[in-house]
Each structure stands twice: as structure tokens, then as C-alpha cells.
Design a protein around this nucleic acid. Structure first.
Lengths: 201, 201
DNA sequence: GTTTAATGTTAACTGAGTTAAGTATCGACC
DNA sequence: GGTCGATACTTAACTCAGTTAACATTAAAC
């Protein structure tokens, strides 16, 4: 029944855009008093997970250059969201640490997302949720299996999904910070064309 | 059962990123011999739907400036994917028309997406698909209802889902080209920070 | 026939990325 | 202990896709 396949595929794609684009953007806008780019937000999110992160770690994780991270940290530091802290052992390295104001934005983001999620989840019975979860997991794993570039930071779980995460490459960040090398080779945060900057209109 | 809610929400978000980001990017890269930005691809996609489109229509639809559209059309015209055609009635206006090479890219994109989709759909029984469709539609409508900025071009259906489209504001484009004014107020294609440009590494 | 509005292009600018060069520190080796 | 290469970060110059503002050209209104 090709038509069902078609409709379902389309609706899955629409859902993806709605969640990954519209919902994320609006939540971030609500959560933060200042405009943050997607990458700046991702940096905060990474810093909120366990482990120490330096400029080059962040560059590797977000797959952008050290120079770009450095500039983003300038911006975030200027907003008092993060700070550079020289490492005791090695005076070349800097640990980037998340400050209270940065945490506040993340907490607010999670709170808003949590609220939206709560309302959404109220729609479904437990049976339906379990059903949907199973189907969603299968969509994810199957879709990723078809792709070459499957490394990414999902970070949707706040770094605590551990071994239950469906994303193989995520597990490193979620539960094993020491494995943080070379995640997300290709879910690039490349030079910008369109969607993810703060709205300036 | 808060934990199920949490897990399900996370997995929905992960699925969204996987589909909207990774899958779209890789498909576009496979489909097009030249690097197209997300907006350039969206322009092609819009042009492939029914109706005549001028610079200002496209600007309104993508929510970027006339000047930006003009430059994008320069680029697409230089690649022989589209052409400017002076309108008989009004010599100020230009109809932007999709050329064969442009259509070829769209066809190839759809073909690849169709293939991926076919494999994915093989995973599910008809019962499961109907189930999933229902749940997905509810996620979409509910999520959109919570958002203020719900205007968007989804264009996932290729412009032919008509009244069955779950996206109210989409219907204009899918089935009623004359309503093409002011779709997508805010699913911005704003100045760029991060993800959607062709990969230059 | 002149003024006003609409359409599209050009020019100057912005912001977030890039690469390449520069600075400082560390570790190793003679 | 001094030099040399590697590592970590920053700075500078550039690119690219947006922006706004000024400018042609054409159409419409009075």
C-alpha cells in the first residue's frame, strides 16, 4: 500500500522539521534572555555534561574549527555564561566552565521543554507511548543505519541516558566522557547559510 | 510514569534531528552534483509546485529578503537550474522558472528519499504503519498548537497532499497556490550561523 | 503628465564560519 | 640546561549567505 508509506514518510519528515526546527528555536528563544546561536547553545549543553572540556574538545565535538569555538567562547564569556579557567597542570590548556547564568539558561530550556513535553505526553495512553517509543526507536536506528555520517551529539537526554541511548556514538558523551574524541564527524556545524542563528528581524 | 515520557520525548527529538538534519543533508548531497544551500534547494522545491513564482513570492515564502533571493537566483541561474523569464503583462516582474537540470536534481532527491523510505517502511506491518501515522499526526498537530510561530513550508509532500496535510498553513502551498502570501512567517531562513550550508571541508 | 507604488538589482555591511600565522607552554632529547 | 618539535589557544585575513538602503525601471492613479 504505497500511499500509506508515502503519507507516513511525509508526516515523519514534517514532524522532524516541526520538532527539530520550530520547537527547538522557540524554546531557546523563550529560555534565553540573550540571543544564542545554535552552536553557542550546544556548547552550553556540552559543558553541562560531566567531564572537563577544553577549546579543542569542543571543536572536535561540534565539528567546527578551534578558532570558531574560541570566538564563541569570547561571546559566551562576555555574557557571563561561561569562563575560561587555566588548568593547574598545563598552562596552555583552558578548561571552559559553565557559570551560574549559563546553567540558568539550560535549566530554563529544560523546564520549558519539559512543560511542552508533559502536555504532549498527556495525549497518549501508556500503551500508546510504549508503542510509539518502539516505533520511533526503530525509525532512528534504521535511518541511521542507512546513513554514512552517523556521528552526532544528540544531547537530547541531557547526558544521562547512558547505555539505553539508541545512538551508538552518543554513548560516549552520555556516559563515558573520556570517550569524547571524534564524536560527530559530520553532523556539521559548518559555516552558515540559513536556519540556526538568532532571529534578528 | 515520568520515565517513559522522558525517554519517549528524547527519542522523538533524536528522530527529529536524524531525519531533518542528517538524512536531509546526505540525501541532498547525493542528489546534487553541485553544492546547494538549504535555501537554494527550497527554492527549487517551491518552483516545482504549481503556480508562477516571482522573486518577491519566493522572498515571502522563505522569509528572506528580496536581495537574498535575487542572489540565490543568480547562483541557480548560473548553474542552469532555473531561469528568469520576463512576464508578458508586467515588464517589472520576472517569473522564475525551473529548468530541466533543476528538475533533475529534485527527481533524484525524491528518488533517493523514496528508496530510503521504502527500506524503512518494509520494517513495519500495515497495522504498525497506521498506528505510527496516527501517533505522528497527533504529535505534529499538538506540537504546532503549542507554538506561536507555526507558519512554514513543509513541502515534504511535493505539493500534492492537499487537504489531507496536517499543516494548516501548508495547505496554501500544497493545493491553493493563489494563497501563497505570507506562509512561513517565522520558520526563518535567516542569516546564517550553522548547519545548513554545503559542506566545505 | 506627474506622482506614487511595485519589482528587482546593486552596494555596503554583518556575523559566523574558514585557513593560516603567531604566541606561549610543555616534553623530550642531546 | 638549552634547543626543538608538538600542543593549545588566539589573532588576522578571508568567505559566504544573509541584512538594509539606495537605485533603476515600469505600472497605475489621479
Amino acid at each position: 500500500m504505497g500511499n500509506l508509506d508515502q503519507t507516513l514518510s511525509e508526516n515523519i519528515r514534517i514532524m522532524a522539521v516541526v520538532i527539530a526546527d520550530i520547537c527547538h528555536r522557540s524554546t531557546l528563544q523563550m529560555a534565553s534572555p540573550v540571543n544564542l546561536t545554535r552552536n553557542q547553545f550546544t556548547i552550553l549543553k556540552v559543558l553541562s555534561t560531566e567531564g572537563d572540556f577544553q577549546i579543542s574538545d569542543l571543536a572536535r565535538l561540534l565539528d567546527i574549527s578551534n578558532a570558531a569555538i574560541s570566538k564563541n567562547i569570547d561571546r559566551l564569556a562576555q555574557l557571563d555564561l561561561v569562563a575560561r579557567q587555566t588548568k593547574p597542570g598545563d598552562r596552555r590548556s583552558l578548561d571552559i566552565i559553565l557559570l551560574e547564568d549559563g546553567m540558568k539558561i539550560l535549566r530554563e530550556f529544560d523546564r520549558i521543554l519539559g512543560e511542552k513535553q508533559e502536555h504532549l505526553m498527556d495525549q497518549f495512553s501508556i500503551q500508546e507511548k510504549e508503542n510509539l517509543l518502539d516505533l520511533v526507536k526503530r525509525v532512528i536506528t534504521f535511518t541511521l543505519a542507512e546513513e554514512q555520517d552517523t556521528e552526532l551529539i544528540c544531547l537530547q537526554c541531557g547526558g544521562n541516558c547512558g547505555d539505553t541511548c539508541v545512538i551508538d556514538s552518543c554513548k560516549g558523551l552520555c556516559s563515558l566522557p573520556e570517550k569524547k574524541i571524534s564524536l560527530r564527524q559530520s553532523v556539521g556545524a559548518k559555516q552558515g547559510s540559513s536556519d540556526w542563528s538568532p532571529d534578528k528581524k
